[in-house]
Structure formats: structure tokens, C-alpha cells
């Protein structure tokens, strides 16, 4: 019967989804701790060290605090959209994880399990699509708060994300021209056999990195929540776990973006200088996951490092950088890539 086979397949994917979503949550939780610890290190402080050894239980304490705080929904807000906003932010943050290959494959219970939720042949466009939806959580939340600071933050977020999406998309197109495929899995396989894509696309990677910072609303591009101009930006009116969702979605976005960058430009789960096919399947699978997470950890550190090193841009500087520097550079990168492909293939 086809139904029973289908059910096992669906079960396998469901388990995979649950595992990946919970890992995203845990990584995001501990990124908040890492953020505070790294900030403390950079500013020559100790950072949180009371809850548990080395402050390891601090994220749990923070989460509990957010849960137990009083929840306030402003009287003049649009109640339904006010609740919908943080939910949308969380949803779009988690959706991208579906197409990322987290590892090669594992053999469990006599079944070969691919460590990717969906290997669709438009993988990279899917990532781009979800990124472009990420702004809805912020806009909806900011408008429904019925607060002028919130609205200003939301409008800033919308124009910022649309502006930086262009350069992001064009730097991705140059990458597509090199790899010739849209599937993230296939890109990783190509990088396992040849060189990592960073070798072919250094400028493309740099543009992608800068645009990712803007898309995640991270410093130096955190204008939507610039606290010394807009109080709290789009989440001024939010309290309790709804605020927690917004803050948390930012860290999940960072985690997923790091995973995307590692996959696209740094070989994904590929272990450098090692031929994975010589190892048993399960060992190679687990080592691959470890390699990917090490790369992700590096990018997360980079996010934090930049936040505590570089001050915030002014708003016109932000727009000028996006439209007058990054977009022309991305176009130039695409042109050079096309020319190089034409030249070397002939």
C-alpha cells in the first residue's frame, strides 16, 4: 500500500523538522548568552556569570523572565495584528531552515535519511523568497501598535530590507552563474569535489555578508530599532514573550543566515582537506554536521564581533550605501562573473 510508505516518509520528515526547529531555538538561546559574553570580553567586563557555571543557565533565566512578565496589549492597538506580528516574525525566521542541507545522510534503522527537509530544485530562490517575507512581521507589528515610534521603525525596516534585497539578489545571481544550479544540496556536492565558492566569488560573498547584516537588522544596520532615536523602534509597545519573540527571531535569523552563508560560500557540511567517501556513512554524516556547525559558529561570532565594534550608520548613509555602493558593486560582480565564464569556457 502506498499509504503506509508515505506515512513513514512523512514521519521521518516531521521528526527532522522538530529536531531542526528545536536546534534553531537552542542555538538562538545560547547566541544571546554568547552575545553578552563576547560583548563583555570586548568591553573588558565579565558578563553574566551568576546563573549556573559560567552563566550557562542565563538564557533559561532570561526566557523565564520574559514568560512571567506582565503582558500588555495597548488599548488603541489593533489587537489581532498586534498578536500576529511576532508570530509572523518567528515563522519567517524558521522557514528558511527547510532547504538547508544540514549534513549528507545518516543510516538509521536500515533507512537512509537525508539530513535536509526538502531538496527542491529552486532552493536558493526559496531562501530569497522567505527573506523578502521577513519584513512582514516587523511591518504588521509596528503598524498595529498605533505608536508613531513603532511606525517609524516599521517604515525604516521596510525600506531598508527592500533596498538591500536588490544587492543580495544580484550577488546571488552571480553565484548561480558559477554553480549552474539552484539546489543547495548540489552546490554543496560541487564544493566537496572542487573548491569552495568563496574562491570564485570573493566580492559576491562580501556583498552577501553586508546585505545579510542589513536583512537581519543587526548593527551597524539596526536602524529599525535604534533605541536612542526611536525608543525601541518597531517593538516599542511590546512586552513579555511577544517582545521575546521579536528578539528571538533576530537571533534565529542570524543562525539561519550563517547556515546559508556557510552552505553557499564555504562548502556547507564539507570538511576541508578530507575525502568524506573514505569514511563510513554515519561517521561522515556526523562529522559533516559538526563541520557545518563550526562554520555557523564562526559566522555567529562575526555577527556579534561586528555589533560591538562598529557604530550604527545614519539613515541616509544606510540608503546611500545600499543604492550607490552595494548595488553597483553587485552589478559589476555579475558582469565580471559573466565575462569570466565566457572567457574561460571558450
Amino acid at each position: 500500500m502506498f499509504l503506509s510508505i508515505d506515512l513513514i516518509y512523512i514521519l521521518e520528515k516531521l521528526i527532522l523538522i522538530v529536531i531542526i526547529v528545536s536546534i534553531s531555538m537552542v542555538v538562538a538561546m545560547y547566541t544571546t548568552l554568547a552575545e553578552r559574553k563576547v560583548a563583555a570580553f570586548i568591553q573588558d567586563r565579565r558578563g553574566p556569570n551568576r546563573a549556573g557555571p559560567f552563566g550557562l543557565l542565563q538564557p533559561l533565566a532570561d526566557g523565564l523572565k520574559l514568560f512571567f512578565k506582565e503582558e500588555i496589549i495597548p488599548m488603541f492597538s489593533n489587537k489581532f495584528l498586534f498578536v500576529l506580528g511576532p508570530g509572523l516574525a518567528m515563522l519567517t525566521a524558521l522557514m528558511t531552515s527547510a532547504v538547508i542541507p544540514w549534513g549528507s545522510k545518516l543510516e538509521l534503522f536500515g533507512r537512509e535519511i537525508s539530513l535536509q527537509i526538502a531538496d527542491i530544485n529552486i532552493g536558493i530562490l526559496y531562501v530569497f523568497g522567505v527573506v523578502s517575507l521577513g519584513v512582514y512581521g516587523i511591518i504588521v507589528g509596528s503598524w498595529s501598535s498605533n505608536n508613531k515610534y513603532s511606525l517609524m521603525g516599521g517604515l525604516r525596516a521596510a525600506s531598508q530590507i527592500i533596498s538591500y534585497e536588490l544587492a543580495l539578489g544580484i550577488s546571488l545571481i552571480a553565484l548561480l552563474m558559477v554553480t549552474g544550479t539552484l539546489s543547495l544540496k548540489e552546490m554543496v556536492l560541487q564544493q566537496q569535489e572542487g573548491y569552495w565558492n568563496i574562491v570564485y566569488q570573493p566580492l559576491g560573498f562580501f556583498l552577501f555578508l553586508v546585505c545579510t547584516f542589513a536583512e537581519c537588522n543587526r548593527t551597524p544596520f539596526d536602524l529599525p530599532e535604534a533605541e536612542n532615536e526611536l525608543i525601541g523602534g518597531y517593538h516599542t509597545e511590546y512586552s513579555s514573550m511577544k517582545l521575546g519573540f521579536y528578539l528571538f527571531a533576530e537571533y534565529i535569523n542570524m543562525f539561519i543566515s550563517s547556515a546559508v552563508m556557510a552552505t553557499l560560500f564555504f562548502g556547507g557540511y564539507d570538511i576541508p582537506f578530507l575525502d568524506e567517501s573514505t569514511l563510513p556513512v554515519n561517521v561522515a554524516g556526523v562529522l559533516g554536521i559538526v563541520a557545518l556547525f563550526l562554520k555557523i559558529a564562526f559566522f555567529l561570532f562575526l555577527f556579534i564581533w561586528v555589533r560591538w565594534t562598529i557604530p550604527r550608520f545614519r539613515y541616509d548613509q544606510l540608503m546611500g550605501l545600499g543604492w550607490k555602493v552595494l548595488l553597483p558593486l553587485a552589478l559589476l560582480n555579475m558582469f565580471l562573473t559573466g565575462a569570466a565564464i565566457l572567457f574561460f569556457d571558450k
Partner: peptide
């Protein structure tokens, strides 16, 4: 996916804006 990127992702954001 292009329908999502162009319409849902870009044009509708401007509409909402």
C-alpha cells in the same frame, strides 16, 4: 517562487507601506 518574491515580497510591502 518568483510570484512570492516579486508580488508578496516586494510589491505588497510597498502597498502596505
Amino acid at each position: 517562487v518568483v510570484n512570492i518574491i516579486v508580488y508578496a515580497g516586494a510589491i505588497m510591502v510597498l502597498f502596505l507601506f
